[in-house]
Amino acid sequence: MKQYLAQRVGLVPVTLFVVSLLTFVLAQLVPGDVGRTILGPYATNAQVHALDRRLGYDLPVLQRYWHWATGFVSGNWGVSPVLQVPIRPLVMDRLGNSLLLAATAFVIVVPISVTLGVVAGLREGSRTDRAISLVGLSLLGLPEFVGATVLIVIFGVMLAWFPVTAQAPPGSGLLTRLHYLVLPAIPLVFVLFGYISHIARSGTIETSNAPYLRTATLKGIPRRAVLTRHLLPNALLPTVTVIGFQVGYLIAGLTVIEELFNYPGLGQLLISSATNHDLPTLADITMLVAIIFLVANILADASYALLNPRIRARRAQ
């Protein structure tokens, strides 16, 4: 197990290296010129070239890559040429906001979808099951921006139960901030509910039909013990992995929601840095997102292995 994890963690630098190359190269491909974007359409070409030279954009690509990569690793992320603020504090601040939104969505979606998925699985084919599956599948097919817009109109504008922006006024307490986050979190719950409940349901159905479940039932132990000791730990293994994979998306993939609710999260910054030719910020955020996904996946695998004695043993060998 330890060896397996060490192997996974050992691969992280390699993956990050590949990601960093891709990120950097792709960032160069963004059309337009950095100096031109900053100075605007009325600057002369000479001014633009001078700015490009000052920012280092006339250097060979490899040299620029090296400069950026070493800076990223050493934590010296530099100053955004567009926003004129240090990049690291800016990104970290946004990451904190994103984490808060992700945590809100997570706390709502996981218990609901796991519980309903298991209930549906235990009553396979019943009306309850069909209702849960239908709702899950419908929500799965609903794009984030549609769900979010409908929610804003109904709960934000018509009923005015929740604020239509996600960002609480500065200096608000945690409760107020959470109140602002409920509405943006719900479209995320919609997106993930169908997925997680479906995996929980199929895991439950599969495990319900496993011979060992019959053995447990025929032993004469109470149904509650059959469920909690024999069914759930095995039925929810795939669900744990899937949830782990979604953590990455929840933290770093929320561009649409953050835009809609005007929430200063990582996703929003990613979009603005891409449209503004803020290449260093764009590259740094992309790397950060890659790291978040990698860590989430490793955690998902590790929790799967921890819960499954067979994997634990096989990987220890």
């Binding site: 060992y212 004469g220 109470p222 004695p309």
Partner: peptide, 19 residues
């Protein structure tokens, strides 16, 4: 497939005596 993969032998047999 007749034994629960996630529980030890002891846990599975002891269940009968407990419950």
């Amino acid at each position: 497939s007749a034994l629960t993969p996630s529980l030890t032998i002891g846990q599975q047999v002891a269940e009968v005596y407990r419950y």
